[in-house]
């Protein structure tokens, strides 16, 4: 497959990913991942130093579903939304069915009262399985540029 087609495919699925979260359809969010996925939110400092633990860690799609269920049923937090702005995917490698890519993001957070802030910037460090044109995330490490998180991180990035 020509590289440009892979870029297009990854960009397409990532736009859908951002739209899913920003539209509040969190129940659909785990479906962007493989069953044996890894999803992690960490800081650039932890990532650079090889420190494993971050703010969120999941190594199964079930854990992502649990995250959503907990947000819906258990956790208490002030209503808010995200607006993701994604850069173009940068393809690092494409070997057989697996694509590794990195994509910059900015996420604005809009609180219930209208307060809007740049909540996070960073990059997705990803490994996709292409699955014959339906890419799913085998691994997404959300590397936030800052190690400071304002108040809470409820919705996924």
């Amino acid at each position: 497959m020509p590289v440009s087609d892979t870029v297009g495919l990854i960009n397409h699925v990532q736009n859908a990913y951002a739209r899913c979260i920003d539209d509040g359809k969190l129940e659909e969010w785990p479906d962007f991942f493989e069953d044996d996925c890894v999803y992690k939110i960490t800081t650039v400092d932890n990532y650079a130093q090889g420190l494993e633990a971050g703010v969120i860690f999941a190594n199964s799609k079930g854990m992502l579903r649990d995250r959503v269920a907990s947000l819906r049923e258990a956790n208490i937090y002030e209503r808010h939304l995200y607006r993701h702005f994604l850069g173009q995917a940068w393809i690092i490698s494409e070997v057989a069915d697996e694509v590794r890519s990195e994509t910059s993001f900015i996420v604005a957070r809009i609180m219930r009262d209208g307060t809007t802030d740049v909540y996070a910037t960073g990059r997705y460090v990803d490994a996709y399985r292409l699955n014959g044109g339906k890419p799913k995330l085998r691994e997404r490490i959300v590397v936030c540029d800052s190690s400071r998180f304002d108040t809470l991180l409820a919705l996924p990035l």
Binding site: L51, A53, S147, F149
Partner: peptide, 11 residues
């Protein structure tokens, strides 16, 4: 062993 660090800014 330090496994990770982060800062939570509280209002």
């Amino acid at each position: 062993v330090v496994l990770g660090r982060y800062t939570q800014a509280l209002p």
